[in-house]
Amino acid sequence: MDFAKLFTDSRIVLGLESLDKDTVLANFVKALAENEVIDKDSVKEVISALLKREALGSTGIGRGIGIPHAKLKGLPEVVVAIATVPGGVDFNSVDGEHVNAIFLILSPQEDADKHVSILKWASSLVRNGDFRAFLQRAKSPAEAVALVAEMSEELAQ
């Protein structure tokens, strides 16, 4: 599956304010509801599912990246979204670094099989230092979408 196709401008949230981790995640989810990526009525449920997963162990995977994720009942399809937090947020990451880019993954409970392949794609993008640097410099969601598409294509080759 071409996961880069899951990205549209509405799934990119640039410049989240640097607050505590729970608040940053909540603000990210609320922004996605505002952009009509997720149902406004599901905001509470999504935030609580993400925080519940974080409580099992931080999804701060190092190099300034966090990949909060959750499985949700009745979600029509996988949602992948990216946010940047220019000032960084303490994620209790595996390498101790603050997170400044968040890859959010929401999967339908009934269709969790794709999870490892989504992680493979996302981690292949973020292992690339150029990708991480360009993402921070993106001036608009459209620029970030183009970056994801371009890098994904490069990886597929």
Partner: peptide, 12 residues
């Protein structure tokens, strides 16, 4: 020793 690299394996 890198979580990111480990996940790029896509090991099911």
């Amino acid at each position: 020793k890198s979580v990111i690299e480990m996940m790029t394996l896509g090991a099911e």
